[in-house]
Design a binder for these strands. Sequence first.
RNA 1: GACCCCGUAGCUCAGUUGGAUAGAGCAACAGCCUUCUAAGCUGUAGGCCGCGCGUUCGAAUCGCGCCGGGGUCACCA
Length: 552
Amino acid sequence: MKRYLNEKVSAALASMNWLGSAQLTFEKPRDEAHGDLTTNIAMVLAKSLGKSPRAVAQEIVTALKVEPEYISNVEIAGPGFINFHFTERFFNHRVGDVLLQGDAFGRTTTGEHKKTQVEFVSANPTGPLSVGHGRQAAIGDTIANLLEWTGHDVTREYYYNNAGRQMRMLAESTYARYRQIFDPAFPFLEDGYQGEYIVEIAQRLKEARGESLCALEKEKAIEECKSYAEQALFGGIKDVLGLMGVKFDVFYNEDSLYKTGKIQDVIAEFRRLGLAYDSEGAVWLKATALGLEQDRVIVKSTGEPTYRLPDIAYHVEKFRRGFELIVDVFGADHIATIPDVLAGVRALGYDPEKVKVVIHQFVTLMRDGQQVKMSKRSANFVTLDELIEEAGSDAVRFFFLMRAVSSHLEFDLDLAKEQSEKNPVYYVQYAHARIASILRFAESEGSTSSLPAPNNEAIDYSLLVQPEEIALIKLLLEFPDVVESSCYTFEPQRITTYLHDVATVFHKFYHEHRVVTPDRELSSARLALCSAARTVLANGCKILGISAPERM
RNA sequence: GACCCCGUAGCUCAGUUGGAUAGAGCAACAGCCUUCUAAGCUGUAGGCCGCGCGUUCGAAUCGCGCCGGGGUCACCA
């Protein structure tokens, strides 16, 4: 639709030598009376031409040549908009295109197989995934899906660290809980992990190993606890991600950056560039020389690197591995580290423009109208697996994707749990199930009245003339554009919003018009339309990672 | 104090690269099932788009300054 008009209007502009002096764009007017597409080109050109916008518009329209078969009306309106009305014929013949493309409808190739990495979740195995991680998993996986739908070669990656202070604390906490099974008076560490899950892990450890760890030397026993707890927690994390339908291609261990000398290489390179110096026993990155506020420690006086150094080394590795587009999905709590990493990457000669950082805000969990406080260290917190168990994966994913990533998300547990019409995810799924039901019904009727198959070439799409039919077709045709804009702006909520709209428009159509009627020609055309709507809903659900049920 | 996100209907939030008369769900009220799924549809009501100034043909959208809420500012990750 846009492509068609772009060609025609560009030709008109060219005939007056106005082409190129302003960006020609088309958009869908909010008000249907203003046509199917509109352009503001006349208003943009008016100033430089020294003419009134409406006069410019008139000249363009006069020079414009369009086929009346496709364009029913071109009008100048308001301050100088040029509105284009397409014919019903133009729209209803597109239904066949949708059906022909089927589960590929909405896919585009603009990504040109660009090698792309999406990093998300990246939680260290120190505890079960939180609700916040769940949001990140839904966002990251959906962005990855969107990138695939636009033709990128996508690698889903999870970066983790199973060394360091936090893991040490996990090990000691587990050890203490383990010892407490045999000796309730065994002291628990001051700032250890309080969560009930540690007790459970200790219990399982006891079942697996009996009392044997008590006999071991403490350090040795703690080491055993660490590997056992890590394995248990990582297993749990992967299970929960699996429940959400999230599968990673690569689990990247921070440790490998040390083993292969990548960390040392980065330090050496910074030193060579005069961007690192020693002070107070630590190694500092001269971030001020890179335009940042203050210098930062990259290697502590204890000899351990701070998180910045491996983060920079990891990003360097992303470039070295050949990724042309690097998407980092982080929680808002990591926002402060990003400038350091990007500055480091740039200093080392890589283009930070290729790194897109998607920051998502926090999730507030509401239960009975009360906020549920969440902290991994406190005993009282709702984990992602509990949430999924209560509300189901579809509802959880959909809820996480309903809001803009930059907005705080209030997750109403009671609403998500409610398996009823109040729950928005069902609205979309119900539309899909309803269509599936209609198609089943038509098939059963077809055995006696031989209705043509929905994708039959003999279908007369021009029978689709009702306002509800045309409105549905128009909306369905927007799907590829919605996928693209959602992808390139990294705003997955555009898909949930759009699918909700599709469901609404379909339900209205369904309410107004009977699909299967004695009129076989009309029935066929409407079945085709239903099938096209089902295609869009199913494809959209696929992108969101939720199911599109045949029955509800 | 510095930086980041948010501020739109009673509540939770959409609102496409700035476009014409501001949108949905929930909550409230009033209707619609002898017909393909009522987990649906229709109608009513609900708004200084936080405030002010600016940019321009035009601002919920962009800029600056306030106000309010949240977050981050380690030799924690």
